[in-house]
Simulated scan of single mutants.
Amino acid sequence: MNATTHAVFGVAAFAGACLAAGVEPPVYAYPAAVVAAWLPDLDNPRSRLGNGLSRMRSPALNLLSRPLSWALRATSFLLARTVGHRTLTHSLPGLALFSLPVWLILRGHPTLALALVAGYASHLLADALNTRGVPLLWPLGRPFRLLPGGIRSGGAAEIVVAVGVLVLAGYALALLHPALGGALGLS
């Protein structure tokens, strides 16, 4: 799946988790869910985060983001060379390795922790729709697919799925934030 689809899945998963928990999330948590949804692809140097956020058009932003960009590229290179793409970061052990420190560090900010974990988990769900699937029990077992054959990344089916999830996310956001629902004419 592409970065936009993962972002949509991340917001939808976070909004759904907040609805299930009965929590009204702060607005700043949504971008955290998007970044977390991109995080498993850090093992791919060509991904949104793996390429170090690319170069920005603003020289000031480039200067500010350069240390983070170098760190992302170095981590991506290390992951790609040691475990490869769609291995550890796309598995349940990888989700656990990500979630445990998040819950421990953000104990005082449970909604932000939920955003990060839901975003990360949404990536696994989205990629389980893909033709390659995800190795949920890595390093054991075969890739897991939610659909026989799966959906080709970048194809028309991915767009249809992303739009469907976007509609569900919009509905969940309208339920979570009544003012937004009223502005959209849903209330």
Rank of each mutant, 00 (worst) to 15 (best):
A118M: 02
G141F: 07
V167Q: 00
D127R: 00
P93G: 10
A13W: 08
G150S: 04
V27C: 00
S69H: 14
T82V: 14
G50N: 04
A3W: 07
P26Q: 12
L106V: 10
V83G: 12
P26A: 13
V83Q: 13
V167I: 15
F98S: 06
A37V: 07
W38Y: 13
N130D: 08
R48A: 14
P40H: 01
V27F: 10
R107A: 13
L106S: 09
S91R: 05
P178R: 06
A32K: 06
N51F: 11
G154E: 03
S91A: 11
A37S: 14
A162T: 14
G22N: 04
F98W: 11
S187I: 11
V83N: 11
L63A: 11
S54G: 14
G94S: 04
R55P: 04
A126P: 02
V11C: 06
L106M: 13
W70T: 15
G108M: 05
D127M: 08
F9N: 00
I151R: 00
A156H: 12
T5P: 05
G149E: 02
H90K: 01
A37C: 07
G150E: 07
S76A: 11
D43H: 06
G119S: 07
A37G: 12
S65G: 13
T4W: 09
M56Q: 15
A12P: 03
A60S: 13
T82L: 15
G52V: 07
L53I: 06
T87K: 13
L180E: 08
E158C: 13
M56F: 03
P25C: 05
V134Q: 00
F98E: 08
D41V: 03
H90S: 02
R48N: 08
A96R: 01
A113Y: 05
S65W: 14
L79N: 06
D43P: 06
D127S: 02
V134I: 10
A33Y: 08
